[in-house]
Nucleic acid binder design. Structure first.
Length: 465
RNA sequence: GCUCCCAUCGUCUAGAGGCCCAGGACACAGCCCUCUCAAGGCUGGUACGGGGGUUCGAAUCCCCCUGGGAGCGCCA
């Protein structure tokens, strides 16, 4: 039996990291078992579904590399099929028309709540549905009234629900649109989903879906309900607390594999390992290693992981990403230096590509000013001689490589009877405008002699004035 | 209110009865390395929610309590 999993988002809002984590686990599980991963867009809510939201889902999945083997399927394109099942159930008495009005239902609900009962449909139309003037009926599923439903959940274990707790849910709205629980059931059945991996919040829907699946005559898939992801403050993920579009992470300079690695470790673990390549995750992931409790997002750890992945990533690839980030800062990189060289020098000292871009601007554009504190400390009459000697020595340097620059710096320090820092730091401020940069030899090598000499002259003039 | 789920450092987690007076990671502090910033190395503090059982022995099993969450929609 081939494993078949599906990610079934509804295009009513952002695709945020909660959804992405679910998608990731579905995808990983399929990949791990040589199965099929399906993308299905649940757009039966005509009111709130938007094409823009669909596009965000597609773009997000593409960026993350969570490629679907089938789909995307759209529920709105499967209405004929839903209709067919409903008609059959109606004919077989497994579903029935209900003429109760929204007001009546509201009333019933309030009464039950007042009596401290669980609000549920009382089944009034189940046995004697009275067609009423001007009311287009909805269709309800006739849920079994006795017995129990057992969910054998891959992460939660055995969970039992009493049918007496369930009511006859609406499967077809009066406007002709089928509803969520019904569509999911039919789709999972038709698409031969073997493993339903989704958020914890669906555990309560599962017995209803199982009852309908049994009516369909279906074999039950394996269910795996993932724990929720919470905001950094431990509260539910909301717009104020981390529920931003996944594409925003791309813009902020996170690597897809770092985000995925981070998300995988929210609920899943493999011993003490923290850093995983995509390949490793595909090989090691198993639903049995997923835990049951909700997890809060920790932005610091995401940053750290991103840096770890940045350090391990290919320079050429990163160069492309860096170029995009620099373009956002309106920095033209076409005049050099070589982006890959910059990446090599910067990638272990940046949390994100955005940070990397910000601290790399000086490679492409002469700093417009010096950081006040850095200049005050390093561009002084005392350091001026060092800068002048450095300028002179560098101007005469034949081999402009990090190695020779390093040797030259060392010689300069020795001759001056000072530490390397006394020489390097003023130069750093002179060429970068600030007190932070990659090692001075690398920095100068990348910058090129022309720029270095020019900037040194400018700094010397700055002190002199 | 009813039903269901969950509960180890601040956070993510390891732990499937003795290997645990609880291990790793992020963050934090200190030290080392060092031309800055990082990276890396070392050290440190902080956790099994509470109470009952079961057992020779419980973070691990059972029960209760407490706390958190989800569902109860002609939303998904």
């Amino acid at each position: 039996m081939t494993v078949r999993t599906r990610f079934a988002p509804s295009p009513t809002g952002m695709l945020h990291i909660g959804g992405v984590r679910t998608a990731l686990f579905c995808w990983l599980y399929a990949r791990r078992h040589g199965g099929i991963f399906i993308l299905r867009v649940e757009d039966t809510d005509r009111e709130r579904s938007t094409p823009e939201a669909v596009q965000v889902i597609l773009d997000g999945m593409a960026w993350l590399g969570l490629d679907a083997d089938e789909g995307p399927y759209y529920q709105t394109q499967r209405y004929g099929r839903y209709r067919e099942v409903i008609d059959r159930w109606l004919a077989e008495g497994k579903a029935y028309h209900c003429y109760c009005t929204k007001d009546e239902l509201e009333q019933l609900r309030n009464d039950q709540l007042a009596r401290k009962e669980k609000p549920r449909y009382n089944g009034r139309c189940r046995h004697d549905a009275q067609p009423r003037q001007g009311i287009t009926p909805v269709v309800r599923f006739a849920n079994p009234q006795e017995g129990e439903v057992v969910v054998d959940d891959a992460v939660h274990g055995r969970v039992v629900f009493q049918n007496s707790e369930l009511d006859d849910l609406i499967i077809l709205r009066s406007d002709g649109n089928p509803t969520y629980n019904f569509c999911v059931t039919v789709d999972d059945w038709d698409m031969k989903i073997t493993h339903v991996i989704r958020g914890d919040d669906h555990l309560n829907n599962t017995p209803r879906q199982i009852n309908m699946l049994k009516t369909l005559g279906g074999e039950l898939p394996t269910y795996a309900h993932l724990p929720m992801i919470l905001g950094p403050d431990g509260a539910k993920l909301s717009k104020r607390h981390g529920a931003v579009s996944v594409l925003q992470y791309k813009e902020e300079g996170y690597l897809a594999e770092a985000l995925l690695n981070y998300l995988a470790r929210l609920g899943w673990s493999h011993g003490d390992q923290e850093i995983f390549t995509l390949d490793e995750m595909c090989k090691l992931f198993d639903i049995t290693d997923v835990n049951k409790s909700a997890a809060a997002i920790n932005p610091d750890k995401l940053s750290w992981l991103n840096q770890q992945h940045l350090m391990r990533a290919d320079d050429a690839r990163l160069a492309g990403e860096l170029q995009w980030q620099l373009a956002q800062l309106e920095v033209d990189t076409s005049g050099g230096p070589d982006l890959e060289a910059v990446v090599a020098a910067q990638k272990e000292r940046a949390k994100t590509l955005k940070d990397m871009a910000a601290s790399s601007v000086f490679f492409f554009r002469e700093p417009a000013w010096y950081e006040e504190k850095a200049a005050k400390k390093n561009l002084t009459p005392e350091t001026k001689p060092h800068l002048e000697r450095a300028h002179e020595a560098l101007a005469g340097l034949g081999d402009w490589s990090a190695e020779s620059i390093h040797a030259l710096m060392q010689a300069l320090a020795e001759q001056g009877g000072v530490g390397l820092g006394k020489i390097a730091q003023p130069i750093r401020v002179a060429v970068s405008g600030g007190s932070v940069s990659p090692p001075i030899d690398q920095t100068l090598a990348i910058l090129g002699s022309e720029q270095v000499l020019k900037r040194l002259e400018r700094a010397i003039a700055f002190i002199g004035s």
